[in-house]
């Protein structure tokens, strides 16, 4: 269940990834944004307390779809292809300030 609705190209190989600790399935060739929004309803929380965001332009212009990985990396959802084993976080941030 998610925000985006698949209308075509549904016979691609599945790709497993983790979103907020839950394993979900996307399809090979999905963007990270599509992988998240076919399995959920938002990508991130606004930094300024005005609620959830799900991206906006899908063409790498608005920069509203940056998500965190568990490892503390940032991915631009609309222009990064999903990869098996990705671990995405849509709530808060995973930014660690202490050097590892």
């Amino acid at each position: 269940m998610g925000r985006f609705v698949r209308l075509a190209e549904t016979d691609r190989p599945p790709v497993s990834l983790e979103i907020d600790g839950t394993m979900v399935t996307a399809l090979a060739g999905d963007t990270v944004q599509v992988a998240i929004l076919t399995n959920g309803f938002a990508l991130r929380e606004s930094e300024f307390g005005d609620g959830l965001r799900a991206g906006f332009c899908l063409m790498a212009a608005c920069q509203d779809c940056w998500v965190w990985t568990v490892e503390g990396e940032r991915l631009r959802g609309c222009s990064t292809e999903v990869a098996a084993g990705m671990r995405i976080v849509t709530k808060g941030s995973t930014w660690q300030i202490e050097p590892s």
Binding site: G72, E98, P99, S100
Partner: peptide, 11 residues
């Protein structure tokens, strides 16, 4: 100085 800055982006 602060390795954590490496995870960020300059805008």
């Amino acid at each position: 100085v602060a390795p954590a800055l490496g995870a960020l982006r300059t805008i």
